[in-house]
Amino acid sequence: MNYRDLPSMPVAAQSTESITTGDWRTIRPVLNKDLCDRCYHCWAFCPDVSVIVEEEGSFPKVDLNHCKGCGICSTECSKQAITMVREDL
């Protein structure tokens, strides 16, 4: 990109989805479906919009491209169904 490609005003409109914050992570949430009662607290409190619930009733999934591994989902899980597991190098 050079100066000719810039807009006349400093406007930004491209979604941050292209930024993969998943590589910040050192620990990763793992869901035990046997324990999950689908309260979706993990979804509600995720700062990174990285807990995906496709439709009401389905189990939450983690968007590992963006999840930063904070672990809030694990702490807030009402059934202790999410454990944080260390990432491999």
């Binding site: 979706y40 607290h41 700062p47």
Partner: peptide, 25 residues
Amino acid sequence: FQFPLPKEEYMYPGHSACPGCGEPI
């Protein structure tokens, strides 16, 4: 299975907040 919040999202993932930051929540 009731969502505790409205389903519609107005925020994308990939933003620059530190892990666990309260602001984006």
